[in-house]
């Protein structure tokens, strides 16, 4: 995932409780509209009904490393994903791709995720792995930490290359943390006293659940880290019977 620097960090406005779309119906509509056969079969695989308990939902944790924060101008450097469900995270189905982004790698982003020019030079364009990627996501609900990255970036990359974007439901583990730690605006007393809000970044969130420290900035490790975090969050304050519509966005 992309690690936001402080000035860009999540600004602490409370999450709205707007209800998520009816994804099952939305997928039917999108399947009819899609022109690209890969997208058609992705949407045709459908998604679970909103009332499905989380324990019955097939999931896949996904993380992107990107060259920057803006989906319009920056590109994807690597993708990591791990299939899972509420009981097990399955590394045997994990995948990791290094990609050739639309723009040159800045030396700053090399420092962050450790992927070098020569690796990128040998890497494929996202279009060459799209089929494989969409197959891995088909029929599953995607788990990310901070939904401002993966979905918009994939959408932008596809718009750019095949002229149509893509949509899918995600469970955002950062948003699940925000529901607890950003449920109301920071009070004036806290601001006057300079008290910092509880961090909802991936590593800090994990520490609250006694999850081990994993080195950040590797797409596959970060995907794994989000997968574990989701299991911990559900164990902590939801139940296996929680309907998916209360969790996804």
């Amino acid at each position: 995932m992309l690690y936001l620097r402080k000035k860009n960090a999540f600004n602490g406005t409370p999450y709205s409780k707007s209800s998520p779309p009816d994804w099952a119906a939305r997928f039917k509509k999108l399947a009819a509209q899609a022109k690209d056969p890969r997208l058609q079969s992705f949407y045709n695989a459908g998604t679970v009904d909103g009332d499905t308990p989380i324990s019955k939902v097939p999931l896949v944790a996904m993380d992107f490393e990107t060259t920057g924060l803006d989906p319009e101008s920056n590109g994807i450097v690597s993708i990591g994903l791990v299939p899972m469900d509420l009981n097990r995270i399955r590394c045997s189905g994990a995948q990791h791709w290094i990609l050739k982004p639309r723009e040159e790698l800045s030396s700053e982003s090399i420092v962050i995720h450790g992927i070098t020019h020569s690796e990128v030079a040998r890497a494929p364009d996202i279009i060459r792995i799209l089929d494989e990627l969409l197959k891995a996501l088909a029929g599953k609900v995607v788990v990310v930490h901070h939904r401002g990255i993966e979905r918009p970036f994939l959408n932008a990359e596809l718009l750019n290359r095949i002229g149509e974007g893509c949509e899918f439901p995600v469970i955002d583990t950062m948003e699940l943390e925000a529901r607890v730690y950003r449920s109301k605006p920071r009070g004036i007393v806290d601001r006057l006293l300079g008290r910092h809000p509880t961090s909802i970044r991936l590593a800090d969130s994990r520490a609250r659940y006694n999850l081990p420290f994993y080195s950040p900035h590797h797409a596959l490790t970060d995907a794994l880290a989000s997968a574990e975090l989701l299991q911990a969050q559900i164990a902590d304050r939801y139940s296996p019977d929680t309907p998916i519509k209360e969790l996804w966005k």
């Binding site: 009981n87 097990r88 995270i89 399955r90 590394c91 045997s92 994990a94 659940y209 999850l211 794994l224 997968a227 574990e228 299991q231 911990a232 164990a235 902590d236």
Partner: peptide, 14 residues
């Protein structure tokens, strides 16, 4: 082994 491991989280008392 590492590529075939599965992972599960258990809350205290489970």
């Amino acid at each position: 082994i590492s590529q075939n491991i599965e992972i599960s989280y258990f809350k205290a008392g489970t």
